[in-house]
């Protein structure tokens, strides 16, 4: 099997007000179907040990995560080495129900933003209210970051994880670097 390589070879930037790092390779599986169906909750719980997230949320246990993408779509994240196995277990469990699961690991890039000013760096680029009281750990949001579609969620440790298309990984990394450049702290959410 060929070796999985991330788009930017795990590039890292830590000269600014927040640390930007490309993470991965991550295993990502898109699931589409009736999210209200009881069997889907059961299958997800059995496959990765997580509950189906409520609207706008992401359930994660450190190695795997399940995020709510839209009223009929979930994103399942797991270690890259386990994708094939998780996918085959999902497909076997879905049987002939009108449910779809596809491996999209190769189509995506993922970034981590950490540091005191992580909120601020992302708030400069996304049209989302990221005030600490409004955007709390576990919340998940699909939106745009700069000019490209992206999704992000807040981890328990205060870091953000951003997922975007692999084709725009360089753009995403570059704009996050600009938003995090030294001396650019606004101090909107915390003292500069």
């Amino acid at each position: 099997m060929s070796e999985a390589v991330t788009a930017l070879k795990n590039a890292r930037y830590d000269a600014g007000i927040a640390t930007i790092s490309e993470i991965g390779p991550l295993g990502m599986i898109t699931i589409r179907g009736d999210l209200e169906a009881a069997f889907l909750r059961k299958v997800i719980n059995k496959t990765v040990g997580l509950e189906r997230p409520e609207s706008g949320m992401c359930n994660s246990d450190g190695t795997s995560a399940v995020a709510w993408m839209s009223p009929d779509e979930l994103l399942l994240i797991c270690p890259h080495a386990q994708v094939a196995e998780v996918l085959s277990r999902l497909l076997a469990a879905f049987e002939d129900t009108h449910t779809l699961a596809v491996d999209v690991s190769g189509a995506r890039a993922a970034f981590r933003i950490e540091g005191t000013h992580a909120r601020e760096v992302l708030a400069k680029l996304a049209p989302v209210d990221l005030a600490p009281a409004k955007f709390t750990p576990g919340m998940f949001r699909r939106t745009r970051v700069g000019q490209v579609p992206a999704a992000f969620w807040l981890l328990e440790d205060g870091a953000f994880q951003v997922v975007c298309f692999r084709s725009v990984a360089q753009y995403m990394f570059d704009q996050l670097k600009v938003a995090a450049q030294p001396g650019s702290a606004v101090g909107h959410f915390s003292a500069p």
Partner: peptide, 10 residues
């Protein structure tokens, strides 16, 4: 559909 309130550019 997803009950998100956002500004026009989204």
């Amino acid at each position: 559909c997803c009950h998100v309130t956002a500004e026009e550019t989204e």
